[in-house]
């Protein structure tokens, strides 16, 4: 029992590692602030493309979505960061993470938006168009606000997944939270920094997960 506490809950080691871990935590937050809005916007573009009246656009979108939902995000990240240099394109680990997350997240967020948009009856479009709003205005002011509200729990749930997936960036040596914690672990030969990192993830995500449960209950009622 004592060994377990020593190995996983060693407060002194956590304190020692805290500067590097907190810096990693900052990088994780930064990464989230970049990849989540990018994914939400990319997903919206994917959803709109998947509902395009032009068949070629719809089909291309289906291929895009299928492809990037089927490829494991870690494989995609390694492919982008290790593969692009062979095409003489040199990018930073941060850029590699952003690109692979954009591809993966756009596919997932896109499917969520699409199901939301499809949940809105055609009567809403009839009413909007009959008052002279254009197709674009109808989407922006009538359909999307309702669609987003209908799929808000799914959007939040996917966002929680994205936050957790940012730890993949450690594989390409981007110094985010898990990377920093693992560095500290290998230097101290002690797993307590990992525990520290897990607690930080928990502090950020637990309120969001709580909110999600409440949202889901609210929609069920």
């Amino acid at each position: 029992m004592d060994a377990l506490l020593q190995q996983f809950f060693n407060f002194d080691i956590m304190m020692q590692a805290s500067p590097i871990i907190l810096r990693g935590f900052g990088m994780t937050l930064l990464l989230c602030l970049v990849v989540i809005p990018m994914g939400l916007l990319g997903g919206l573009a994917v959803a709109l493309a998947s509902l395009s009246p032009i068949r070629a656009v719809r089909w291309t979108t289906i291929v895009f979505v299928d492809l990037f939902r089927a490829i494991p995000p870690l494989a995609l990240l390694i492919f982008v960061s290790a593969g692009l240099p062979f095409a003489d394109i040199r990018i930073s680990p941060f850029a590699a993470v952003c690109i692979s997350f954009l591809l993966n997240n756009s596919a997932y967020y896109g499917e969520i938006y699409r199901s939301g948009i499809e949940s809105i009856g055609s009567g809403q479009t009839d009413a909007s168009r009959s008052t002279g709003l254009s197709a674009t205005q109808t989407m922006a002011y009538v359909i999307l606000p309702q669609a987003v509200r209908n799929v808000l729990p799914d959007l939040v749930s996917n966002t929680v997944e994205v936050v957790k997936l940012t730890s993949l960036a450690s594989v390409v040596a981007f110094a985010e939270l898990l990377y920093a914690a693992d560095m500290a672990r290998s230097v101290t030969y002690n797993a307590s920094p990992i525990t520290f990192a897990a607690v930080l993830y928990l502090i950020v995500l637990w309120p969001v997960v709580r909110l999600l449960s409440r949202l889901e209950n609210k929609i069920e009622n």
Binding site: G123, Q124, D126, A127, S128, R129, S130, T131, G132, L133, S134, V142, P145, Q146, R149
Partner: peptide, 20 residues
């Protein structure tokens, strides 16, 4: 069409008010 439609009011069986 959009200019024409705003001068043609339409009322629907299921109201189609915007719920939001």
């Amino acid at each position: 069409l959009n200019a024409i439609r705003r001068r043609i009011g339409m009322v629907f069986q299921s109201f189609n008010l915007y719920p939001h």
